[in-house]
Amino acid sequence: MRALIILVVLATGCGRNAVRAAEKEFLADQVMVFDNDPHDSAAEDHVLTNREGAAGGHGAGGGGCGCN
């Protein structure tokens, strides 16, 4: 848990100025967005959880331009 907190603090500290708004053209592209199609991801999880014991934890949507 402590490691996770440190990781979050480091990431947020370093990330504040990592990329300026004007530099987010590529990050906003759909190929850079995690789970750009959540229904497709859900359908794939549905298949994998019926074949594998290690279900879940494939991440979530977000990323890209950082515009929530």
């Binding site: 979050v8 990330g15 990323g63 950082g66 929530n68």
Partner: peptide, 9 residues
């Protein structure tokens, strides 16, 4: 999105 909009939790 945290400040700078480079980090999302």
């Amino acid at each position: 999105d945290l400040a700078g909009k480079n980090t999302t939790i």
